[in-house]
């Protein structure tokens, strides 16, 4: 099992990228009233046919060569189901993939959100030639950040991987996310 939800988000996003997606959208929602945490990762990758789709949730049907599958998805499915939630994958060959996870926030086994900012940084620095759209919502208040938005300022993709940009990005996201949580009543 992974430690927190932000690590799962990194893991399933890595699946998308390794499968060849050029664009990955990550949406994380915390809804206090409905007592829910929702994680959604949508990609424009090659997608999966029904056979592969039925395999990815089963750790024992995994082949070593098949990098698209592994323990990550089964772990996340188990974590979700332990918290009265579910994991759902929508995909079709040539149609991209959408992974959606819902968890009961107050459930004793619901993992903490963790260091979401580091997850975004690891993705953007690790895959500088791909595009990311990130959204974090707490009770309807949202934070949006995308590669395009950063490139509007930086004007050069090569600058995305500079350590000082990464350090700035992590700090910026951490502060903004903290602000969203602080404003919550």
């Amino acid at each position: 099992m992974l430690q927190d939800l932000s690590q799962y988000v990194l893991d399933i996003s890595e699946n998308s990228l390794k499968a060849g997606a050029s664009r990955v959208e990550i949406e994380l929602c915390v809804d206090e009233q409905k007592d829910l945490v929702s994680l959604t990762v949508t990609d424009n990758g090659p997608g999966m046919d029904e056979e592969l789709l039925s395999m990815v949730v089963d750790p024992f049907c995994t082949t070593r060569r098949e990098r698209k599958v592994g323990l990550g998805i089964p772990f996340l499915k188990q974590a979700a189901e332990t918290c009265e939630g579910f994991l759902r994958i929508d995909s079709g060959k040539g149609e991209g993939t959408k992974v959606n996870v819902l968890l009961r926030k107050s459930h004793i086994d619901c993992p903490p959100m963790g260091d979401v900012a580091s997850t975004v940084v690891a993705l953007m620095v690790g895959w500088p030639d791909r595009s990311f759209v990130f959204r974090y919502a707490v009770d309807g208040k949202t934070l949006d950040l995308s590669t395009d938005q950063l490139l509007e300022i930086l004007e050069d993709r090569n600058l995305l991987v500079l350590p000082e940009v990464a350090v700035w990005l992590r700090k910026y996201l951490s502060e903004q996310i903290e602000k969203l949580h602080m404003g919550r009543k």
Partner: peptide, 13 residues
């Protein structure tokens, strides 16, 4: 997944 579980993201940071 194995790297992430062992703390690879923290190493990257």
């Amino acid at each position: 997944t194995c790297g992430i579980a062992a703390g690879a993201r923290e190493i990257m940071t």
